[in-house]
């Protein structure tokens, strides 16, 4: 597919593909509502804002958006945890938090951490994401509870 060089990935997803699950918040890479997951060939994943990055930068890359977490209608543990904790209110920042939390869980599954480091690790991972409704507390609790519910997987 041809796209113009200066079309952002956010507009490519939302305007060209119609995938509006990825949100537009600021267009300045500051709120991370628009962050998606980029899966590297080595099996690691990171999040990346889409509002300030050209769609062409993602050419050939494997990405995941909020629409792709649940499989066949079955929610992931993190999606369920967000719902059960009432983690979000308006929900507009939720795709960014979900992507960031998912990347963190996948990282911890490969490199578990000590229980004492859980809160700090979550805090560092989510800190760039802005939410105006919730005060962040329940997002953090929702991620933490997924980690603590599966200590063999995530904790040393």
């Amino acid at each position: 597919m041809d796209v113009r060089d200066d079309l952002t990935m956010n507009d490519f997803l939302r305007e060209v593909l119609g995938f509006t699950g990825t949100k537009f918040g600021c267009g300045a890479g500051q709120c991370l509502s628009c962050a998606i997951i980029v899966d590297a060939p080595d099996g690691t994943s990171t999040t990346m804002p889409t509002c300030i990055v050209a769609a062409t930068e993602f050419n050939g890359k494997s990405v995941r958006t909020v629409e792709g977490h649940a499989r066949d209608g079955v929610l992931t543990p993190l999606q369920n945890s967000f719902i059960e904790h009432f983690a979000f209110q308006c929900g507009y920042c939720t795709p960014g938090f979900l992507n960031e939390g998912q990347v963190l869980l996948e990282r911890l599954a490969k490199a578990p951490i000590a229980r004492a480091d859980v809160e700090r690790t979550i805090g560092e991972a989510l800190d760039g994401h802005l939410c105006r409704c919730t005060g962040y507390v329940k997002y953090h609790q929702a991620v933490r509870d997924v980690i603590l519910a599966d200590p063999d997987r995530y904790l040393t």
Partner: peptide
Amino acid sequence: VGRVDGVAKVTG
């Protein structure tokens, strides 16, 4: 449990 809009909001 959860909000009536819960699934919609976590699935984009």
